[in-house]
Structures are given as structure tokens and as C-alpha cells.
């Protein structure tokens, strides 16, 4: 990403009552446009078509630079949680949201960065190809996931999602590449149907992690509700991590999902799940490093 040269501030005028499709609030759409043109970009308020300036106050240079990578857009408002599709297909530049966002933020993005200072709805970074998303609070379901009906592997295919709070269900479902880090806990079906890439959940998660994964890596640093029978225990290791984030505690490593001839790696913190994992201990051949 090139250095930010210009900043736009986009402020919601009032608290919305319905979702606002704000896919046009993106460096790619702003690039090369005059402020007055930007103000006329289309937005959808529920099903009602309108223009940006009707719902938002805009501040920034009268003409945007041509290079999206040099544009930063700061989004504020009384309540930004209903803004949908923020950063849709964005290729470069930066989006900063001073609050929560709605669903589908960063959907299909390929580059640049999105920083959400609050939480996010579902499908955060779904099908994203590159770039980074950072969320300070909780996110909904299907972060980095694929859409309903698509083949495994059609989810996130690159880039990084970092969530400082908790995540909902099915994070990374069907992802093929890229990294998801959740510093809190996650719900059911972490990394289901993933074909590659890595997911780290620092704390606990719900059941069925890694269901039908064929490749990739999942690290759960806290308690899990279950380990699927279709994962075979492999070994114990003294630490585990992804992308430079390492958790230094004992992990039991599983390989699966055997139902789909999977070669995925599932790391489950041992001490946090002792009751559940004890039964596998005798199957681990490798000597434990105490």
C-alpha cells in the first residue's frame, strides 16, 4: 500500500433505521473523482436508492487523487452499525470506521486495509483475496467465509483478519488461504470446509472445529466443546501458532477431516481440555515434551 496522502471524513447524518448499502464508500470509488461527484455516488437506504450526500456529510479534498492507495476514508456517525458492504472489492487504500459496522465489510476485498474500531457484523472479509482487516471488538458469523452453496475453498483466499474481541460461528468456512486471528473466543464450526490458510483462536471455541477441512491449520488456545471423531490424534507439541503469533502451552495435534481425506491440522490446547483429550493420550506415540 502506498502512503496515505488524502483523507476523507464521511459522517452519517443521523441514526439509520434500515441497513445502508455503502459499497461505494471505498478508496477505489473515490479515486480520481471530485468531491461533488463523490457526494453523488449511489447508496441504498434499505431498498431506496439515493446518493451519498443525502445520508452523509463529506469532508475532504475537492478532488481525490487517482491512486486508491493514497486515499484514507474515515467513517463516523451516530451509529455506523447498519453500514453494509463497506470496502466491497476495495483494492488499496484505507478505511477507518469509528464505531461498529454491519454485515459484509471487506467482502471480496483484494488489498488495502480496513480498521474497525468497534465490532462487525457477519461475513466480515468473506471471499477476500488480500489486504488486512482489523476489528477491535466482536465480529459476527462467517468471517473470512464463503457464500452459501459455494464449493469449499471459495471463501477467503488471501489477506489477514485480526479480531481483538470474540468471533461468531463458522469463521473461515471454506477458506483456501490467508490468516484469521481471533484474540477472544469463537463459536461453532471454526474453519469448517477450509482447504488451506490458517486460523488462530486464542481462547475457547464451540464444537465441530475443522469439520470437513481438507487442508490448512487451526489453533485453539482455550477450551473446545468437542473434537470430531473424524480427526485422528497425531502428536503433542509444546507450542503452536500462526503467522508469528505463538501460544506457548501444550497442544494436542489432530489431523483431519478423514471423511474427506483431509490433511488439515487441528491444534487443541491440552490442559484446557484435559477431560476431553485424555482418552487420546495413549494413542499419541511421540514422547511428550514436559
Amino acid at each position: 500500500m502506498a502512503g496515505v496522502k488524502t483523507t476523507y471524513v464521511v459522517k452519517l447524518k443521523s441514526k439509520p433505521t434500515v441497513p445502508i448499502d455503502s459499497r461505494n464508500i471505498s478508496p477505489d470509488k473515490f479515486a480520481g473523482r471530485s468531491l461533488s461527484d463523490i457526494k453523488l455516488l449511489k447508496v441504498l437506504e434499505g431498498g431506496r436508492e439515493t446518493v451519498l450526500e443525502e445520508l452523509f456529510d463529506l469532508e475532504g479534498p475537492t478532488t481525490a487523487v487517482r491512486e486508491p492507495g493514497e486515499i484514507e476514508i474515515v467513517i463516523t456517525g451516530p451509529e455506523t452499525s447498519k453500514l453494509k458492504y463497506l470496502g466491497y472489492k476495495m483494492s488499496n487504500g484505507k478505511l477507518v470506521v469509528k464505531g461498529d459496522v454491519g454485515h459484509l465489510a471487506g467482502y471480496k476485498m483484494s488489498g488495502g486495509s480496513i480498521v474497525i474500531e468497534g465490532g462487525a457484523g457477519s461475513y466480515l472479509g468473506a471471499k477476500m483475496k488480500g489486504g488486512t482487516i482489523e476489528v477491535f471488538r466482536d465480529v459476527g458469523d462467517f468471517a473470512g467465509g464463503k457464500l452459501q452453496g459455494e464449493k469449499p475453498g471459495k471463501g477467503m483466499s488471501g489477506g489477514t483478519i485480526v479480531v481483538h474481541g470474540n468471533a461468531g460461528s463458522q469463521i473461515g468456512v471454506g477458506m483456501s488461504k490467508g490468516t484469521i486471528i481471533v484474540e477472544g473466543s469463537a463459536k461453532v464450526l471454526v474453519g469448517a470446509f477450509m482447504t488451506g490458510g490458517s486460523i488462530l483462536v486464542q481462547r475457547s471455541c464451540g464444537g465441530f472445529a475443522g469439520a470437513r477441512m481438507t487442508g490448512g491449520k487451526i489453533v485453539i488456545g482455550g477450551a473446545v466443546e468437542s473434537v470430531l471423531p473424524s480427526f485422528y490424534v497425531d502428536s503433542m507439541v509444546p507450542s503452536a501458532g500462526v503467522k508469528g503469533r505463538t501460544i506457548n502451552k501444550q497442544f494436542m495435534v489432530f489431523i483431519g477431516d478423514v471423511l474427506v481425506d483431509g490433511k488439515g491440522m487441528l491444534y487443541v490446547a491440552y490442559e484446557d481440555n484435559k477431560l476431553l483429550l485424555e482418552q487420546y493420550r495413549e494413542l499419541v506415540e511421540v514422547a511428550l515434551i514436559e
Partner: peptide, 24 residues
């Protein structure tokens, strides 16, 4: 909303729409 049909579970489903106060 965009003049053509779209179904996104968790987004366009009634319980989510209502509990997120997204319909008027």
C-alpha cells in the same frame, strides 16, 4: 433491496433483520 433477489443467511433472514432492528 437492489431490485433483484438475494438470499444471505444471517443477513436477510427474519430473526436477524428484526433483532438487529434493520426493517422499518
Amino acid at each position: 433491496s437492489r431490485g433483484f433477489p438475494k438470499m444471505i443467511p444471517g443477513v436477510t433472514t427474519a430473526v436477524d433483520l428484526l433483532s438487529n432492528s434493520e426493517v422499518d
